[in-house]
Simulated assay, not measured.
Amino acid sequence: MSADIVSPEHRSKIMSKIRGKNTKPEMVVRSLCHEMGFRFRLYRRDLPGAPDLVFPKHGLCMFVHGCFWHRHPECKYAYMPKSRVDFWQNKLAKNVERDLKTQQALINMGWRVVTIWECHTKNRDLLRLEIQNAFTRDA
């Protein structure tokens, strides 16, 4: 196992700068949804997991997940850090477990749930198709 090249205090400061809301991928998705005419609410705290975008008219909750933090399967951005492997495996597994529980709770409440992955926000044309499909799927 290789050692971290920065002190624990500096690493903590770096990690504290990572935002959970209004991230660049979220902003891309929100902009495109608005451009496509879909109106939404943000972070509805009365719903499990406070979904990133909620489309009440369509019964749809949308999460914009970071590939690293939420373990996008077979994605190059979902790598495992080389230091403190046990810590990261535990932390990231809990994120995935929480995501599944949140998704199931929303489904049980009658919502449709869609996850947009961070890496998908890099190609606007494919993202547009993915968003359009989210509104036509099971509608």
Rank of each mutant, 00 (worst) to 15 (best):
W69E: 04
R11H: 04
C119G: 02
P56L: 13
F135V: 10
V64A: 05
E97K: 00
P25Q: 12
P25A: 11
R41W: 05
H58L: 07
E118F: 01
N95G: 02
T115A: 06
I116T: 03
D46K: 13
V54S: 09
H10R: 15
F135P: 14
A134W: 04
K82W: 01
A93T: 13
R112A: 04
F68I: 04
D52K: 02
E130K: 09
P56A: 14
C67Q: 10
V28N: 06
W111R: 01
G59C: 07
T121W: 03
M1N: 14
K101W: 03
L100C: 02
L92R: 08
L42Q: 09
P8D: 07
G59S: 11
C33N: 09
Y79E: 01
E26V: 07
Y77A: 06
R39Y: 13
W69C: 02
E130N: 08
Q103Y: 00
Q89H: 14
G37M: 05
N123E: 09
N133T: 09
M36A: 09
Q132T: 10
G37Q: 07
A139N: 13
R98Q: 00
V64Y: 01
H120V: 00
A105I: 01
H72R: 00
F63L: 08
R71C: 10
Q89L: 14
V6L: 11
E118C: 05
E118L: 01
D125F: 08
K122A: 08
H65A: 07
K24P: 05
L100K: 05
I14N: 14
T102I: 11
N123G: 05
K57E: 15
E74Q: 12
S16A: 14
H120F: 03
K94A: 07
C119V: 02
F68N: 02
Q104C: 02
Y77P: 01
V29G: 11
R71A: 03
Q132P: 08
T115W: 03
N108F: 01
D125E: 15
K57M: 11
Q132D: 15
M80P: 06
E118R: 04
I14V: 13
R84C: 08
K76F: 07
N90V: 12
H10T: 12
P25E: 07
G49H: 06
E97R: 00
L60W: 02
R19F: 08
N108G: 11
R44Y: 05
L106G: 03
V29K: 12
F135G: 12
N123V: 03
I116L: 09
H70Q: 10
A50S: 15
C75I: 00
L126I: 05
D46S: 15
V64M: 03
Q104A: 08
R39H: 15
R45P: 11
P56M: 13
E74M: 10
F38R: 01
S7Y: 07
S7T: 15
R112I: 00
V6T: 13
C61G: 11
A134N: 10
D86M: 10
K21M: 12
F40C: 03
D86S: 15
D4H: 14
M62L: 15
A78E: 00
M36L: 15
F68R: 04
H65T: 03
D99I: 00
